[in-house]
Write a protein that binds this DNA or RNA. Structure first.
Length: 316
DNA sequence: GCCTTATGCTCAC
DNA sequence: TGAGCCTAAGGCT
C-alpha cells in the first residue's frame, strides 16, 4: 500500500542489492509474461518515478512494476522460502541459489522485523525478492517508459534512476495545471499527472499542514500556498523512505510532545483520525468520500479562505 | 470465521 | 460514477 516514499525506498534498496548483478527472474504463478526475456541478464538500473518502478535489464527489457493498492515486495536472504499463495514474480541473484540446496528452507516472512515493517536485512545482503498483489508487472519497451514519464507530473522525490533525483524547486507545469482548473485541490493532489507520488495519506497531511480547505478550487489556491505544499512534501516524503512509516506531526503538536519516533496514534494529524480531536484545536476530525477515496480533514484548522465551502457530507 | 477496510488505478457506461 | 481487480490485517461475531 505504497505512496512515492515507499517506491523510492524499494528502488534504493534494490539498486544497492542487485544493480550490476546477473539475475534470475521467474513467475511462479504465470501471471507475469516474458520473464524468460529477463532471466539470466544483468540488472543495469532501477528507475523510480511517482508510484512506478522500472527494473532495466537492457534495451526494451524494462520490468515495469506498479504495486497498486495491495502490492508488496518481500525481500530476504537465501535460502528462498517455500512458494505459498499467489506469488507473481521472484528475482534472485545468480549464484546465490546454489546455497539453497545445502540450507534448510526458512519460513516466509521469517525476515520481517518490527512493527514498522522495515527489513532487518541490510540491502547489500539481500539475495532475493518476491512480488505479490501488484496491479502491474510486465516487460516494457524503452518507449513505453518514456511515455509514462511524459505523462506523469514532477515527483517530489526526483525522477528516474538518480538516487538523489532531480527535484525542481518550482514544479512549474504542476502549478500551471492546478491554476487552470476548478477541481478541488484535494483531488488534484492525488492526480499523478499533476504531481507524481502523492497518495491519500500525504494529500490529507499536506493540506492540513498548510491549513488549506481541501475543497478549495485549484484556480483559487494562492501560488504561495502551492509552493509551500511542494516544499513541505520533499522532506516529508524523504523521511518516509527511511522506513515504511509516514510521519507528519511536529513534536510540539503531539499530545506527548515527544520528539523522535512518535506513538502510532500520533503520527498523523488527520489521516484515519476521524472522530478524534484535532491535536491543535481539539475539534473532531472529519472524513468524507470524495472521488472514490476517503478524505480526512479538520473543519476548524482547515477553513482557510473558503470557510463557507461545503466539504462533501461529513461523517462523524 | 466473516466482514470491512486499505497508502491505487483502469475501464465501461 | 461505479465496478472490478489484487492481498492482508484488524475488528467484530
Amino acid at each position: 500500500m505504497p505512496e512515492g516514499n515507499e517506491i523510492h525506498r524499494w528502488a534504493e534498496r534494490h539498486r544497492s542489492a542487485f544493480v550490476g548483478k546477473k539475475m534470475h527472474v521467474e513467475s511462479p504463478n504465470g501471471r507475469t509474461e516474458d520473464t524468460e526475456r529477463l532471466d539470466g541478464r544483468v540488472l543495469e538500473k532501477v528507475l523510480a518515478h511517482g508510484k512506478h518502478l522500472g527494473y532495466v535489464f537492457g534495451k526494451d527489457r524494462i520490468l515495469h512494476v506498479h504495486l497498486g493498492r495491495y502490492g508488496d515486495w518481500t525481500e530476504g536472504q537465501m535460502p528462498l522460502a517455500e512458494v505459498k499463495g499467489v506469488l507473481r514474480l521472484r528475482m534472485w541473484r545468480a549464484g546465490a541459489r546454489a546455497r539453497v540446496d545445502q540450507a534448510e528452507a526458512t519460513t516466509r516472512h521469517g525476515w520481517y522485523s518490527s512493527d514498522d515493517g522495515s527489513s532487518t536485512v541490510a540491502p547489500e545482503n539481500v539475495d532475493w525478492l518476491e512480488l505479490r498483489g501488484a496491479s502491474d508487472c510486465s516487460v516494457w519497451t524503452d518507449a513505453q517508459w518514456e511515455q509514462l514519464i511524459e505523462r506523469l507530473g514532477p515527483d517530489p522525490l526526483g525522477s528516474t534512476g538518480e538516487p538523489a533525483g532531480d527535484v525542481p524547486d518550482d514544479p512549474g507545469p504542476a502549478f500551471e495545471r492546478i491554476a487552470k482548473t476548478k477541481k478541488p485541490i484535494c483531488v488534484l493532489l492525488m492526480e499523478q499527472d499533476v504531481i507524481a507520488g502523492i497518495g491519500n495519506i500525504y494529500r490529507a497531511e499536506l493540506l492540513y499542514r498548510e491549513r488549506l480547505n481541501p475543497m478549495t478550487p485549484g484556480n483559487e489556491v494562492p501560488v504561495a500556498s502551492l509552493k509551500r505544499i511542494w516544499k513541505d512534501s520533499i522532506p516529508l516524503m524523504k523521511a518516509g523512505m527511511v522506513d515504511r512509516r509516514i510521519i507528519t506531526t511536529r513534536p510540539k503538536d503531539r499530545p506527548t510532545k515527544k520528539a523522535g519516533l512518535p506513538l502510532k496514534e500520533e503520527a498523523h494529524y488527520v489521516y484515519r483520525r476521524h472522530g478524534k480531536p484535532c491535536f491543535v484545536c481539539g475539534t473532531k476530525v472529519l472524513k468524507t468520500d470524495i472521488a472514490g477515496r476517503t478524505l480526512y480533514w479538520c473543519p476548524v484548522c482547515q477553513q482557510g479562505p473558503h470557510a463557507d465551502r461545503e466539504v462533501g457530507v461529513a461523517v462523524q
